[in-house]
Amino acid sequence: MINYTVRFPDDLYDRIRTQATADRRSIHAELLHLLEVGLSAVAPETPDRPGGDPATPAPLRGRSNSSPT
């Protein structure tokens, strides 16, 4: 198992904690669940990734200037 440290904005952490409580999961289990659900929703083959090649970069999402200010 890999250990990975992640920092969350306070408001996002609160949302995760609230959802974990509602789902009767630990925050860790809730994060794993959300990652699994999110990753399963990504189609392995899309027009942006012909052949489902994970090395082919996907386009950036959001505004063209999405840097935090």
Results as ranks from 00 to 15, higher is better:
residue 2 I to C: 00
residue 3 N to M: 07
residue 4 Y to A: 04
residue 6 V to L: 15
residue 7 R to Q: 07
residue 7 R to P: 00
residue 8 F to D: 01
residue 9 P to I: 14
residue 9 P to W: 06
residue 10 D to A: 13
residue 10 D to P: 08
residue 10 D to I: 14
residue 11 D to C: 10
residue 12 L to H: 02
residue 12 L to S: 03
residue 12 L to F: 10
residue 13 Y to C: 08
residue 15 R to A: 14
residue 15 R to C: 10
residue 16 I to E: 01
residue 17 R to A: 15
residue 18 T to F: 06
residue 18 T to D: 08
residue 18 T to N: 02
residue 18 T to Q: 11
residue 19 Q to R: 15
residue 20 A to K: 05
residue 20 A to D: 00
residue 21 T to P: 00
residue 21 T to W: 09
residue 22 A to R: 15
residue 22 A to T: 14
residue 23 D to T: 13
residue 23 D to S: 14
residue 23 D to Q: 14
residue 23 D to V: 11
residue 24 R to M: 06
residue 24 R to Q: 07
residue 24 R to Y: 01
residue 25 R to F: 01
residue 25 R to E: 01
residue 25 R to I: 03
residue 26 S to K: 13
residue 26 S to N: 14
residue 26 S to M: 13
residue 27 I to A: 06
residue 27 I to T: 13
residue 27 I to G: 02
residue 28 H to W: 05
residue 29 A to D: 15
residue 30 E to N: 13
residue 32 L to E: 15
residue 34 L to D: 05
residue 35 L to K: 09
residue 35 L to F: 11
residue 36 E to F: 09
residue 36 E to I: 14
residue 36 E to Q: 14
residue 36 E to A: 15
residue 36 E to R: 15
residue 37 V to D: 03
residue 38 G to S: 13
residue 39 L to H: 03
residue 40 S to C: 09
residue 41 A to S: 09
residue 42 V to A: 07
residue 42 V to E: 04
residue 43 A to Q: 08
residue 45 E to R: 12
residue 45 E to T: 12
residue 45 E to M: 08
residue 47 P to G: 06
residue 47 P to Y: 13
residue 47 P to Q: 11
residue 48 D to A: 15
residue 48 D to V: 06
residue 48 D to L: 09
residue 48 D to F: 14
residue 48 D to E: 15
residue 50 P to H: 04
residue 51 G to C: 04
residue 51 G to Q: 06
residue 53 D to A: 00
residue 54 P to M: 06
residue 55 A to D: 10
residue 56 T to S: 00
residue 56 T to W: 00
residue 57 P to C: 06
residue 57 P to K: 07
residue 58 A to C: 04
residue 59 P to E: 12
residue 59 P to Y: 10
residue 59 P to H: 09
residue 60 L to A: 08
residue 61 R to W: 09
residue 61 R to K: 08
residue 61 R to N: 03
residue 62 G to P: 09
residue 62 G to A: 08
residue 62 G to F: 06
residue 63 R to D: 04
residue 63 R to K: 01
residue 64 S to N: 03
residue 64 S to I: 12
residue 65 N to W: 07
residue 65 N to H: 09
residue 65 N to G: 05
residue 66 S to T: 02
residue 66 S to G: 04
residue 67 S to L: 13
residue 68 P to A: 09
residue 68 P to I: 12
residue 68 P to F: 07
residue 68 P to Y: 04
residue 69 T to W: 02
residue 69 T to Y: 00
